[in-house]
Simulated scan of single mutants.
Amino acid sequence: MEMNDLAERIRSADPALGLRAVGALHRLAEQVEAASVAAARERGWTWEQIGDALGMSRQSVHAKYGK
């Protein structure tokens, strides 16, 4: 889904379109977060630093991405 399409759907009066757009945004955010965590780890960041940047505990970040 393109960004312009997402923005249009979010502004729609149709809740189904808006909710599908929200789902797409959640999936995109998860992908960006995972890529950013991987990049941070490759650059030597600690789980604590990553957790602080994401507003999460280091344990939560490690449990989610430490595999």
Rank of each mutant, 00 (worst) to 15 (best):
M1P: 14
M1C: 12
M1Q: 09
E2H: 08
E2P: 01
E2L: 08
M3R: 10
N4R: 14
D5M: 06
D5K: 09
D5F: 02
L6K: 04
L6Y: 03
L6I: 14
A7Q: 08
A7D: 02
A7S: 07
E8W: 06
R9L: 07
I10V: 14
R11P: 01
R11I: 02
S12W: 09
S12E: 02
D14N: 12
D14Q: 10
P15N: 08
A16D: 13
A16G: 05
L17P: 00
L17R: 04
G18S: 08
G18H: 01
G18R: 15
L19P: 00
R20H: 09
R20T: 06
R20E: 15
R20P: 00
A21Q: 00
A21Y: 02
A21S: 14
A21H: 01
V22H: 05
V22N: 01
G23Q: 15
G23I: 03
G23V: 07
G23M: 08
A24Q: 10
L25A: 11
L25N: 00
L25Q: 01
L25W: 00
H26M: 10
H26W: 04
R27S: 15
R27A: 13
R27C: 05
R27K: 15
L28Y: 06
L28T: 03
A29K: 12
A29Q: 13
A29P: 01
E30K: 12
Q31I: 03
Q31W: 05
Q31R: 15
V32N: 14
V32A: 13
E33I: 01
A34D: 10
A35Y: 03
A35L: 07
A35C: 02
S36C: 09
S36P: 02
S36E: 15
V37Y: 01
A38S: 13
A38G: 07
A38H: 14
A39H: 12
A39C: 08
A39N: 11
A40D: 14
A40I: 06
A40F: 13
A40M: 14
R41E: 03
R41D: 05
R43T: 09
R43N: 11
R43V: 08
R43D: 09
G44L: 06
G44N: 12
G44H: 11
G44T: 04
G44K: 09
W45E: 05
W45M: 10
W45A: 11
W45N: 01
W45T: 01
W45Q: 12
T46I: 06
T46F: 15
T46K: 15
T46M: 15
W47P: 01
Q49S: 12
I50F: 13
I50V: 15
I50E: 13
I50C: 12
G51D: 12
D52M: 03
D52F: 05
L54I: 04
G55R: 08
M56G: 00
M56L: 08
M56I: 01
S57D: 10
R58M: 05
R58D: 13
Q59M: 06
Q59I: 02
V61I: 07
H62Y: 11
A63T: 03
K64S: 10
K64E: 11
Y65V: 07
Y65G: 07
G66I: 06
G66Y: 07
K67E: 07
K67A: 08
